[in-house]
Design a protein around this nucleic acid. Structure first.
Lengths: 125, 125
DNA sequence: CAACTGTATTGACATTTATCGATATAGCTG
DNA sequence: CAGCTATATCGATAAATGTCAATACAGTTG
């Protein structure tokens, strides 16, 4: 009908640059939480820890984690705290030992964010 | 039959700690790549950039990205480079402008890793 | 080709992070 | 309760990161 048919498109018609007419989709608070979780899992040791806990949840105490790496005990404890503070894992004390489990809901928020990104191929299932 | 019925379990029967009989599932090289990608997206600005590109892939030049944040142009360029070096986004020059798009395959590796974690609820679809 | 423009790089600096040794804490056990 | 053990915290230090101003580079345009 009207000559300006692209008034709904995110790109303005005439100009050639810096014309994207869209704001950010995520509230900053939400982006902060997601980024903090991605950042926590964004370390090789912590990624392996999460993978380990997801396989043997509830059966892995701190010394079990330690046995898988050549890092000192304080360093392992540090990585567990980073994951804990990001909400990705939780601790449960049983007697003298502390067992860790993953926090599935928090991990799911990451998966959901990635799934919501457009233009991706369907993940292998 | 036999008294030691849990010889297949990852937890040894007698002891109480440090008895997990399982190694790491991921080769370190793979964990390194995944962690680097998670780390790259683990920053609020970069997470928003990826989200933006996924929505308007191919239509977003650097100055469009800049317009969404209150950071200097070199800082935006830095974040774009971090994402590029992690393989999560790609650049395409058109004339004087550089347009960025997401790298769906790389993003899918992250989604696949999270999906492969056990003990998670089914993500909302 | 000279000026302009969009983007990348460099250099500097403050902050954060990863790591370890030393020490503290909490819970078990004799 | 005294000693032991598993885990956490503290303090220090080297390395990595985020940010910006200044500058360089590449492509366009007069």
């Amino acid at each position: 009908m009207q000559s300006n048919s692209n008034h709904e498109l995110p790109i303005a018609s005439g100009a050639c640059c810096c014309t994207l007419q869209a704001g950010l989709r995520l509230p900053q608070a939400e982006a902060d939480v997601l980024a903090a979780r991605f950042k926590a899992i964004g370390h090789p040791i912590r990624l392996q820890i999460v993978d380990l806990l997801s396989r043997f949840g509830g059966e892995v105490c701190v010394c079990d984690v330690e046995a898988h790496f050549t890092l000192s005990q304080p360093t392992i404890s540090h990585h567990l705290r980073v994951l804990r503070r990001a909400g990705l894992i939780e601790a449960e004390q049983r007697g003298l030992w502390v067992y860790y489990v993953t926090a599935p809901a928090a991990l799911a928020t990451l998966q959901d964010f990635l799934a919501a990104l457009e233009g991706q191929p369907t993940p292998v299932t």
